[in-house]
Simulated assay, not measured.
Amino acid sequence: MSATYNDIQLDALRELANIGAGNASTALSGMLGRPVDLTVPDARVVPMTQAVEEIGVPESEVTGIALGVLGDMPSVVLMLLTPADAASICALLGLEPDSEYAESALGEIGNVVGTSYLNALAGMTGLELEPTPPATATDMLSSLVQTVLASRAAVSDDALLLDSSMIVEGEGCSIVFLLSPDHGGAGELLSRLGVS
């Protein structure tokens, strides 16, 4: 964990994440036509260089959904799903995980979740944030995260890492949510939340 953030600041980021999770739960419930409970048991700020190690086994296969963020805090949002969790979400949508529509459907789920988090963040901080359309890919964790974050390395120092748990009618899955703002973005968020 980055030593530059104290417990009060991390609690504020967790609270922000939980509000975003509440928004995402409501949006996904409407999309799936069934109750969805999305929670964020853990939120932490990690240096960009440690992001892969913090997320999981570098050689493991994951599906990633990336959204660019334009506006007051240029960023990238990256959501990561294991193959089992991606298959569970596809099944909820009535799709086979390897069907031609699966990647598009996962991208739309990522879009709904990412946009819900960003709307909560904008509402609490007053920042103008505009997401770009999602891009979806499946690869090794290290390749995927490094590809996305390599484009950010020159402009970002820290990443906000949210381990999320989603339960849809008793079926659970995990989503790792990573927000990589431009340099100083995490500090700006905390300043806007009054805990800088």
Rank of each mutant, 00 (worst) to 15 (best):
L161K: 11
G64V: 04
V148R: 13
L93G: 12
V113Y: 03
S165T: 15
P131C: 06
M140G: 06
A159V: 15
A154T: 13
E169P: 02
R152D: 01
N111T: 14
E128N: 13
G172D: 09
G71A: 07
G107C: 07
S99L: 01
A150N: 14
V76H: 01
S156M: 10
L161E: 13
I89C: 09
S156F: 02
G126L: 06
S156G: 05
S165Q: 14
P83L: 09
P74G: 06
G94H: 09
A84H: 07
V155F: 09
G94Y: 09
D163C: 00
A120R: 08
V168C: 08
M73E: 08
D158R: 05
S99F: 03
G123H: 15
G172V: 04
V155S: 14
V176D: 13
G126V: 08
L78I: 11
V62S: 05
V145H: 00
L121S: 01
T63I: 08
L95I: 07
M140N: 10
S143V: 12
D158V: 07
A135R: 10
E96V: 01
D72Y: 03
R152C: 12
G68L: 04
E100C: 00
V155P: 00
D158S: 07
I89K: 02
A159C: 12
T138S: 08
S104Y: 01
L70S: 09
A86I: 05
A86Q: 03
A120G: 11
S60Q: 12
L118I: 14
S156K: 09
G170M: 06
A150M: 09
T147P: 01
A135G: 11
L144A: 03
P74K: 04
S164R: 04
L121R: 01
E169T: 15
E171N: 06
L162T: 03
T138C: 05
M124S: 14
Y101G: 04
L121A: 10
S142F: 04
L149P: 11
V112W: 03
S60W: 00
C173L: 11
G71C: 04
A150V: 01
V168W: 03
G172W: 01
A154H: 08
A66W: 03
S142D: 14
D72S: 10
T63F: 02
I175Q: 08
E108L: 06
V176F: 01
S164E: 10
G114Y: 08
V112Y: 07
M73N: 05
M79Q: 15
V113L: 12
S142V: 12
N111K: 07
A150P: 02
V112F: 09
G123K: 13
P131E: 13
E128H: 10
V168R: 04
N111S: 15
S151D: 15
S60P: 00
V69Q: 04
I109G: 01
D158K: 03
I175E: 13
V155L: 05
E128T: 15
L161A: 15
L141G: 11
V77L: 11
E96L: 04
L78F: 07
Y117A: 11
L93R: 11
T132V: 03
T147D: 05
A153K: 12
G170A: 06
P131M: 06
L127Y: 15
E130A: 08
S142Y: 02
Y117S: 07
S165A: 12
L141I: 12
M140V: 12
E103Q: 14
D85F: 04
M73K: 02
A86D: 01
E171V: 13
A91W: 06
M124Q: 15
S165V: 10
